[in-house]
Amino acid sequence: MTGSQNWHEIKSLVSPAWLYEHLEHPRIAIADCRFALMQPELGQHQYQEAHIPGAYYLDLNQDLSSPVGKHGGRHPLPDPALLVEKLAAMGVNSESPEGPTLVIAYDDSRMAFASRLWWLLRYLGHEQVAVLDGGFAAWKAAGYPISTTPSLAQSGRFIPKLQTDRAVDIEQVKTRKDLPTVSLVDSREPERYRGEKEPIDPIAGHIPGAVNYPWQDVTTEQGYARPIAEQRDRWATLADSEEIIVYCGSGVTACVNLLSLDLAGIPNAKLYPGSWSDWCSYQE
């Protein structure tokens, strides 16, 4: 995306150049979503050390998920009311005379955590959200300014319009996964999909009938989204599905595939938030 890209033409992805050009715009809110699954405190420390000016930190465990239970997976969806409160404190407005706030999310993990926020906002009915292409590393590499100052709480007005049809639960997966018009996508690494290794969950393998589209294939190793034509080609064999259900280990990296499907112009994709960690909790 170019720095001169029109505001209304944004389609789920913006470049560092575009964000830098619009950094002071009053209708932009920036979310730093950096996180490390094995070091839960790391993202907060990284934010304190350096972040994009004006950004607010949202933690995967504390802000973008709810507490773990027996079922529901390792990263259950957050309580909408609590997430809405946090978004409002970032100055996010769902409606205003000037128009809704555009939320820009970034991380340094090939869009894994930024895409979770991107999907959550759309689940809350807020379509004005995009992921920063290349993440924080791309911002730094371009020589754009960084800050160590935490952003002050604001008073936005965010009224959610929950889009429950964007998500499915385990019972819906069971009843729909084998229908000829439905495709079930496993977003994990091929070795985990095949059950050759399972570093996190107690049981290895995948949901019967799922096909494997590893989430890392959406981006380059540097964290830039592959061209739109490649995103379309990647999903070509599933493009005619009436419904695509996407899952991963815990409903986080699957959102990168959902972003890819959106970029490819395939709108009928849904998240199974509990994902494999929920599915296998019933197999023990």
Rank of each mutant, 00 (worst) to 15 (best):
A17N: 04
Q163W: 11
C33G: 14
S155G: 12
S260K: 00
L124W: 05
G125P: 01
Q163F: 05
S241V: 06
E230M: 12
P150F: 03
Q44N: 04
A137W: 02
A269E: 07
L238T: 05
Q216S: 14
K11Q: 10
R34S: 15
P80F: 11
Q231P: 02
M90P: 03
Y224P: 14
V168Q: 03
P273T: 07
P208Y: 11
V252R: 02
Y56V: 09
S241W: 04
M111W: 02
F158S: 01
E21K: 01
Y272K: 00
W118H: 08
A167F: 15
R27K: 15
D278V: 04
S15E: 12
P150L: 03
A105Q: 05
Y144V: 07
A138V: 05
T220L: 06
L259D: 05
Q172I: 04
G69C: 15
E9M: 10
S281F: 06
S66N: 09
D201K: 02
A130Y: 00
Y47L: 03
G143N: 05
P100W: 00
E9Q: 14
N268S: 11
E21H: 01
M90N: 06
D107L: 01
L263C: 12
Q154N: 07
L102F: 03
S147N: 12
R166A: 14
Q5L: 15
D178V: 11
D262F: 07
V252T: 09
G274D: 04
E243P: 02
L23G: 07
A17S: 10
Q5W: 05
I159M: 10
A269T: 08
S151I: 07
G3V: 03
A130P: 03
H51N: 12
R122W: 13
E41P: 09
P26R: 00
G195F: 04
I203D: 13
T149L: 08
N212Y: 00
S147D: 13
R188L: 09
D59F: 02
L60A: 13
D63L: 06
R176Y: 08
A153D: 03
Y106F: 12
G72M: 11
D240F: 15
C255R: 03
A130W: 01
E85N: 13
G205M: 01
I28T: 10
S66M: 04
Y144I: 01
K270S: 14
V129H: 08
K86R: 12
H8Q: 04
T237C: 13
Q216T: 14
Q283M: 14
C248V: 00
V129G: 14
Q128K: 10
G135F: 09
W18Y: 11
Q128G: 15
A112R: 06
G134N: 05
D178I: 08
T175W: 10
L271A: 11
S155L: 10
A138G: 14
Y106R: 15
L258F: 00
Y193W: 04
C280Q: 01
Q62A: 12
D262P: 07
K197D: 14
N61T: 06
V182M: 06
Y144D: 13
I244C: 05
I52N: 12
R166T: 14
A137Y: 06
I10F: 03
